[in-house]
Design a protein around this nucleic acid. Sequence first.
DNA 1: CTAGGGTTAG
Length: 719
Amino acid sequence: MAVVLPKHFNLLATIELIVPSLSQLIQLKSLTYLARNTSLTEASQFYSSLIQQCTHTRSLRDLGIVQTHMIKSGYIHLNVGNKLIDSCLKCGSINYARKLFDELPERHRVIWNAMISSYISHKKSKEAIGLYVKMVFYGVFPDEYTFSSVFKAFSALGLVYEGRRAHGLSVVLGLEVSNVFVGSALVDMYAKFGRMKDARLVSNRVGDKDVVLFTALIVGYSQHGDDGEALEVFRNMINQGIKANEYTFASILITCGNLEDLSNGKLVHGLVIKSGSEAAVASQTSLLTMYARCGLIDDALRIFKRFQHPNLVTWTSLIVALVRNGREELALTKFRKMIRDSIVPNSFTLSSVLQACSSLALIDEGKQIHAMVTKFGLDKHIYAGAALINLYGKCGNTEMARSVFDALIEIDLVSMNSMIYSYAQSGFGNEALQLFNGMKELGLQPNDVTILSVLLACNNSGLVQEGCQIFATIRNSHYIELTRDHYACMVDLLGRAGRLEDAEMLIKEVKNPDVVLWRALLSACKLHGQVEMAERALNKVLELAPGDGGSHVLLTNLYASTGNWSQVIDMKSTMREMKFKKNPAMSWVDVDREVHTFMAGDLSHPRSREINETLENLIEEVQILGYVPDTRFVLQDLDEEKKKRSLYYHSEKLAISFALLMSGNKNTTIRIFKNLKVCGDCHSWIKFVTKVIGREIIARDAKRYHHFKDGCCSCGDYW
DNA sequence: CTAGGGTTAG
């Protein structure tokens, strides 16, 4: 094909005419010849147009052809070289661009900037900083474009000192506050470092503050715990007549949520509507979170419904919102819906749904999510990891909790606390202490949660001395502030160990003792038959929480166990007057994801007959091994034989018999749940049962887990 | 041919 070109042809027009594909164009030798003989300006124009074409089609291949051609024809000069790199960046090949960049004999400042900002948008902070340093080294002065992008790299890598140096250079070059882009980038950098004073200092010096700068400041305050100041900055901005945009709304709504400030939240909601930013996804997501944090979960759900295509963050926000508001089951339903919609969860999502599983003690659901965590490679991640440890801990599966813990790449304070707490819940006090004592070596400083967990571990395994020692050390060091929870734990520990006077003295140390403390003492009195102190404790409980039914039950049971039947009758009539109904004791088992609930003497289960058979057999067998019914735990005024019979049909025993019946000969661990504390007679009975059946039984009661195995329990008969 | 701020977690 011969191409006839007019003498002074218009290159641009020609290209438009004949460019179906660049490679075809390049093959037109006449054009090559022409390009070689045109003036510098014309050639530059010619190649610029070709490059523009490549940028437009995002074709790296064509760009390569153009580049080769430019080298061959000897026209790879300054301006076009820069354009080539720019096009390369736009085609998405930052590495190829860098190669060209390094080969270029002369580089314009603009192309340094383009390279640096490209590195930053690809999250390659190290490379960005490397290039910035090189730029300064080569004597190419950074300008406002350089500074407005490079500070982000310093904050991303946490390079405070280096960031400050760059800030210094921007001051020397007079760009720090004269350009609002540079100013806001600096404010953002200091805010990300958590150095709000520095951020504020820069902000104050910038003359023409705009919405971006204010937003950076607001986010900084909000994310570093000063939501009040964030709100103040927002007010200030509005008063200056600067209009908030979707970014600002997204941040300030979170601030209102953190403050649980519904009235300001609603005010901002109004501004969002007025400004027409309603369609912005992030603002809507923040709106959802704001309502959820203010406890208005139905409003949050309504906002979610408005999303046509919720993204991962929106879904996660909804799930978090539901978990926060005690709607765990709905959270799990929404999570399944999200997965069906092919949205891939991240560790934010997974740790929230795991939290939902923990709250509901849904071990099977949790295990499935654990599989997902592994599938997405997040099992080494500290957030997902801590959530898994909590889950297994709460479900009484200490071994799994430990294996997750051991697989973590990094152990931080929260995962450590979770593991210690897991041990604590099941009464593995020595293991908890071992972790606690090894913390220093890992460079971890215990906090109040650590101390509470380790004290609970001591409490739940009867390590009285160790608990007292840790408590005393912390109290003397003043390094960690002890809360009422710590004291409550110690009161329980001392009280149950029979050191009732010490426990009562400890309560007197607390400034505003709350009802939990006195309740702990009361239950210790019940345990040790201390009627007098119990009455004192009950009065304190009732002062702080009038109508506290549980404490009445405790004292009633104490009277009953000490044989004061007339007082029992008195208490019961008082309770009737209070219209208080005792929480009936119940146990349940999860069989194939179905929950079977049992109450004492409950014959309502469809397989009641078989359950009773299993139970009778078990009772016979454990009696051979030495089980003796302990009728002290029958809190009714009955004769001995009737007391014995009533013990046999306690809900724990029914639940275990049922679980045994359903699992046949499988050698799996039996798991049962009880809403109150395990009864003393049942506790001893279960220990015998594990001997008979040779299987492990794990029972969760109102306070903790009991791991029964080979005739022993992890609580060491101390609960 | 180059630039700044946002939403989800224990």
